[in-house]
């Protein structure tokens, strides 16, 4: 059996870490008895279950996935590396930045400017983005969003910056 899958190690360790953290936090809550359970009872059970799964994933060493892949006749050689560090940074960075920008800007700047900013940042997640089409798209979507959400659906969102 091939072990083309290399994600089992970080996944299993993450499960263990998350389970341990959850159990540690939950240890502050009253456990109670089985008849009258306290708020800490179920969290400990769930954490133990997650811990067990983490152990099993580490024990299986990726064979749980490799077996499925082999069944489906996938060529293990075409398996992409577990984490392609550089191909992904740009989209992740730009998309997450645009979401955070939305959160920061929507209250002070209003929908029109915020949408413009979000689209402008978001477009650069794409490797082949160019400035002029990006500006046009941002402008168009900004106008579209204001029309759709505020005029048609009448959401309670301010359109323009508030100067107070």
């Amino acid at each position: 059996m091939t072990t083309a899958d290399r994600t089992w190690r970080p996944l299993g360790i993450s499960c263990l870490a998350l389970a341990a953290a959850a159990a540690w936090i939950a240890s502050d809550y009253a456990v109670g008895t089985v008849t009258a359970m306290g708020p800490g009872f179920i969290p400990l059970v769930v954490a133990a279950f997650l811990f067990l799964m983490g152990v099993l994933i580490l024990v299986a060493r990726g064979n749980d996935v490799a077996a499925e892949d082999a069944d489906e006749g996938e060529d293990p050689a075409t398996e992409p590396p577990a984490l392609a560090p550089f191909g992904a940074i740009r989209p992740i960075g730009a998309i997450l930045a645009s979401i955070v920008a939305f959160g920061l800007a929507i209250k002070p700047l209003g929908l029109a400017l915020t949408t413009f900013l979000v689209v402008l940042i978001g477009v650069y997640a794409n490797r082949s983005a160019r400035l002029v089409p990006a500006l046009l798209l941002a402008l168009g979507l900004s106008a579209g969003a204001c029309l759709l959400f505020v005029t048609l659906l009448s959401l309670q969102i301010g359109l323009f910056p508030r100067f107070e």
């Binding site: 996944l11 499960c15 179920i42 969290p43 954490a47 799964m53 994933i57 749980d64 499925e68």
Partner: peptide
């Protein structure tokens, strides 16, 4: 579809989020 072990682990995380 996919690995049963991982799906069970995802269930555990989902339950944890639900708490």
């Amino acid at each position: 579809q996919g690995s049963v072990l991982r799906a069970l682990a995802m269930i555990a995380i989902g339950l944890l989020f639900g708490l």
